[in-house]
Amino acid sequence: MSVTGACQVCEQREAEYACHRCGAAVCSVHFDQDRGVCVHCADPEGRDDVFAEGDGDVPEFR
């Protein structure tokens, strides 16, 4: 499957992956390659900070 557009987490980087659970298009920073899911699906309870250093002023996940 081809993934195009901006990452649906940070909306700054180019999306390279699609989450196998929710289908979100995400960049390599916001994708857990071991599990094949986005950072939100990898941590559904929201315990970890999903925004990488340098993401700047990123929007909140909806």
Rank of each mutant, 00 (worst) to 15 (best):
Y17P: 00
D57C: 03
Y17G: 00
G46H: 07
S2N: 07
P59S: 05
R62P: 14
V37L: 12
Q33E: 15
V37I: 15
A15F: 13
D57N: 08
E60C: 06
P59D: 06
C41S: 06
E45I: 08
M1G: 10
R62L: 12
A6P: 00
A42D: 15
V37K: 02
A15I: 08
E53Y: 12
R62I: 07
C41G: 06
D49W: 10
T4L: 05
C41H: 06
A6V: 06
V37G: 04
D43I: 02
F61G: 03
Q33D: 15
R47W: 14
V58D: 03
V3L: 04
P44A: 01
T4V: 11
T4N: 08
A52H: 11
C41K: 07
E60W: 13
F51D: 05
C41M: 07
C22D: 09
A18K: 09
A25C: 10
C22Y: 05
F61A: 13
R62T: 11
V26A: 05
V3W: 10
Q12K: 14
A24P: 00
C27S: 07
D57W: 13
R35E: 13
Q33Y: 12
Q12R: 14
V50N: 01
E14G: 03
A25E: 07
A42R: 07
E60H: 13
C10K: 03
Q8I: 00
D32A: 12
E60M: 09
C10D: 11
A24F: 03
D48I: 05
G5K: 03
F31R: 01
C22V: 02
V26W: 05
A6C: 00
E16L: 13
M1R: 06
P59M: 02
R35S: 12
C19P: 04
F31Q: 01
F51P: 01
G36T: 08
V37R: 02
E60R: 15
A42S: 15
A15N: 10
D34V: 09
D49T: 04
D57K: 05
Q8A: 06
V9C: 07
V37N: 04
A6Y: 08
A18S: 14
C41E: 07
G36A: 11
D57M: 10
R21L: 12
V29S: 13
S2H: 04
C19K: 05
Y17A: 01
D57V: 13
Q8F: 01
H20D: 15
A15D: 06
D55S: 12
E53L: 11
V3C: 02
C10R: 01
V3K: 05
S28L: 11
F31T: 01
C38E: 06
V50A: 02
P44Y: 03
V3Y: 08
F61Y: 14
A42M: 02
D48N: 07
Y17T: 00
V29L: 15
T4I: 10
V37A: 09
G5Y: 12
A42F: 13
V3E: 05
R47E: 10
E53D: 12
R35K: 13
E16C: 04
Q12S: 12
H40W: 12
G36I: 09
D48P: 00
P44K: 06
G54W: 12
A24E: 01
D55A: 13
S2V: 10
A15M: 09
V58K: 05
A24K: 12
R21P: 00
G46W: 11
D32I: 03
E45P: 00
G56M: 08
C7I: 03
G23T: 02
R13N: 15
P59C: 01
V9G: 00
G56S: 07
D34W: 11
